[in-house]
């Protein structure tokens, strides 16, 4: 097996009394697309900051590109691309100048920066916006520019912290398409997200994180297989009747979850469950059979929804 680009054992971060990251172990292979899935405040961003060599760990072992961030921060950062949760483009500069100025931080000669800027604008589908002020871009375009900027040093690992948070569905799909292309080219992606669909789309393997700890690890399909059933039936009886209806259908399926607005029945065959429900004389106001998702895995592991 090739040397991992990231390997952490017992990685821990304290802020005073607060334990943000509580001894996590991760290993990411070159070319892999690795995700940290968890709710806000789970410790994903803190982990990313430690891996990105901008936050010192409190305890544990950490190697990025085979180097220790405590002693080789600039070296590690020189070969990483970072897409932060909040955009930090220079809004006073034009789109293309943002790429050039950022490339200079890596010691890349001006002429090379200019050439790469043009290539990256094409990749980010922003060629026509080259001379526009950053402030005049839409949210999705700013995100794409931030990703282009993170690629200016031809990174070995691209780290994305909540890459599509705050974007409309269409802009998200455009962004996913770009990231998928990078993945196909063999760029190692490490991303955090609290969107299960994003994790399913982009990650070969992921860890589910909660309260600074890893709850489970595997590919999206493995996690679903291991922690959920093949299908899920979503039943809505109305907020006041969900609980009593759930008692009546208690024996159906593998497992039942009662949420404030709906009842979930986990089963291999959703349609069969639905038939049994109506045979019991229950008539939900709406019902839906769907495939299990990482959302269900998370609910199973933590008893909570990802997005609260």
């Amino acid at each position: 097996m090739p040397e991992p680009v990231i390997s952490a054992t017992g990685l821990t971060k304290h802020y005073g009394d607060l334990v943000a990251v509580d001894g996590i172990d991760i290993e990411v292979a070159p070319g892999e697309s690795f995700g940290l899935l968890g709710p806000n405040g789970a410790g994903k961003s803190t982990t990313m900051r430690m891996v990105g060599a901008v936050s010192t760990r409190t305890a544990g072992e950490l190697r990025v590109l085979g180097l220790d961030p405590d002693t080789h921060g600039p070296e590690i950062r020189a070969r990483l691309g970072v897409v932060p949760q909040e955009d930090n483009l220079d809004t006073e500069l034009r789109v293309r100048d943002n790429l050039i100025v950022y490339g200079r931080y890596f010691g890349i000669p001006r002429a090379v920066c200019a050439q790469r800027a043009d290539e990256l604008l094409t990749f980010a589908q922003l060629e026509e916006k080259a001379k526009v002020k950053v402030d005049d871009l839409s949210g999705g375009m700013k995100r794409r520019l931030t990703i282009a900027r993170a690629l200016v040093n031809d990174p070995l690992v691209l780290m994305l912290d909540e890459p599509t948070t705050g974007l409309d569905p269409q802009a998200r799909h455009v962004l996913w398409d770009r990231l998928f292309r990078l993945k196909e080219r063999g760029t190692t992606l490490v991303l955090t997200t609290h969107y299960m669909d994003e994790a399913e789309q982009l990650c070969d393997r992921l860890v589910v994180v909660d309260h600074g700890r890893i709850m489970a690890e595997g590919s999206p399909a493995e996690l679903i297989r291991q922690y959920s059933s093949r299908e899920v039936v979503e039943l809505r009886f109305g907020a006041s009747r969900n609980e009593s209806a759930a008692e009546q259908i208690a024996g159906l399926g593998d497992r039942i979850e009662i949420l404030p607005d709906r009842v979930l029945v986990y089963a291999a065959d959703g349609e069969a469950v639905l038939e049994q429900v109506s045979r019991l004389g229950l008539h939900p106001t709406t019902s839906l059979v769907r495939r299990s998702s990482l959302e269900d895995v998370f609910l199973r592991l933590t008893g909570r929804s990802l997005i609260e």
Binding site: E3, V5, F106, G107, N153
Partner: peptide
Amino acid sequence: VSPAAASAIEAARRPRRFG
């Protein structure tokens, strides 16, 4: 050092000096 580490060490030379 691995090739990745070697490339990182090389890539940081100029930023370390002229940052």
